[in-house]
Each structure stands twice: as C-alpha cells, then as structure tokens.
C-alpha cells in the first residue's frame, strides 16, 4: 500500500504539473482539494483522466462517490487497490 501511495503521489505531481512539490511534501491523509494540497476543479478532471489512462478506472465526473475517492491519497489508494483486486 505504501508503494501504491508513493506511485499515486508521483502521478498527482506529474499529471498536474506540481512544480516544486515532491512526494515527501504530500501527506497521504491530507485533503487533495481546496485545503491541504490546494487542487482545483480543473485538477479534478485532469486527475480523473490520469487514473483512467494509468489504471483504467472510469469515474463519474460529479458524483458523491468520486468526491470520496478524491478526498486524499489514502482514499485514492483504496480505490486503485480495490480496482486492481476486482
């Protein structure tokens, strides 16, 4: 799981052009959007695309479910892990 979280942090940094942010700067439990890392709605769409390209995960653009998955690196890791297991 730690490995997957590091992988997801790298994905977030690369897909969203987070210059000056390193893997160590991102706390797995902190919010990705608005507070915490400070991502915005365009980032949400971009991240959705990156998940689709990398893991084949398709998410509805504006569902309560997606919001939960996008809350933090921890929740994203759970999503990807369960998708891999399925």
């Amino acid at each position: 799981m730690t490995e997957l979280k590091t992988e997801l942090k790298k994905l977030v940094i690369d897909a969203l052009d987070l210059e000056d942010v390193t893997v160590d700067d991102i706390d797995s439990s902190e919010p990705l959007f608005i507070d915490g890392l400070g991502l915005d709605s365009i980032d949400a769409l971009e991240l959705g695309l990156a998940l689709q390209k990398t893991y084949g995960i398709k998410l509805a653009a504006d569902s309560e479910e997606t919001r939960k998955h996008f809350a933090s690196i921890d929740s994203l890791a759970e999503l990807v892990a369960s998708h891999k297991a399925a």
Binding site: L16, E46, L49
Partner: peptide, 9 residues
C-alpha cells in the same frame, strides 16, 4: 485520445 482538461482550458 482523451483531451487534457487543463490543456484545453
């Protein structure tokens, strides 16, 4: 291929 939303905007 899917378009990058950030690039599009």
């Amino acid at each position: 291929a899917p378009l990058s939303p950030a690039s599009f905007s």
